[in-house]
Design a protein around this nucleic acid. Structure first.
Lengths: 105, 105
DNA sequence: TATATGTGCAACCATTTGGTTTCGCAAACT
DNA sequence: AGTTTGCGAAACCAAATGGTTGCACATATA
């Protein structure tokens, strides 16, 4: 049972949950109201997201508030970094190419 | 059969393939040499990555070179953007908090 | 022309995934 | 105390996933 961020954000419903939660903390019932599935299905997604530490729980009486662990999202950003370097280099290459073409006129 | 970028990068082997390909274009056989699976298994991953447009093919005789479609990677960056705004805001809040604490001394 | 090589595709298999229904349990009302 | 409410856990199920082996088919090479 793999449980990393990439696995976490792979499912569209989970990405929707993340987007929802990002605005403000919510309880499973409130979250489930936004989807066409059962609360239990949403609960499963919440478990997966919590296990890969993208979400954190806060208990208030019998209610559990789920909120986004923004810091964890940075890990995706960190992973992207190496490729960002590539597309920025390519952009620079295009940039110097354009400069050359310009000066040639 | 879902086939989007998030699904594409969900598998660790596929992320490794992306990292490998990012440096230079490669044929399935060469790629497969880097993994403990069969060439066919790698071929399946290549198909998935190509279907979600993260990879592009270039045929040279009987060899097929796979290379990274860097532009497509930007879509993940674009998705991250909304959350980057959140963590930057939180950083700023921390920043102003620190400034306040400082000036109070 | 015969053979070797590089590749994709199909069939098959065990495991995982995403969903459901049913249940148990603690917290909050009446 | 009895009932409602919010939740997670378990059992079950169909579909998807990641792997395998075996095959077909071009393109090189002898």
């Amino acid at each position: 049972m793999r449980r990393d961020i990439f696995q976490g954000i792979a499912d569209p419903t989970r990405r929707a949950i993340i987007a929802l939660i990002a605005i403000q903390a919510m309880t499973p019932n409130t979250i489930a109201e936004n989807f066409n599935t059962t609360r239990q299905a949403v609960s499963k997604h919440l478990r997966i997201l919590t296990e890969c530490e993208l979400l954190k729980q806060e208990q208030h009486g019998r209610e559990i508030y789920y909120s986004l662990e923004v810091e964890k999202m940075k890990e995706i950003d960190k992973w992207l970094e190496q490729y960002r370097r590539i597309w920025e280099t390519r952009f620079n290459q295009l940039d110097t190419l354009l400069a050359k073409t310009k000066s040639r006129k």
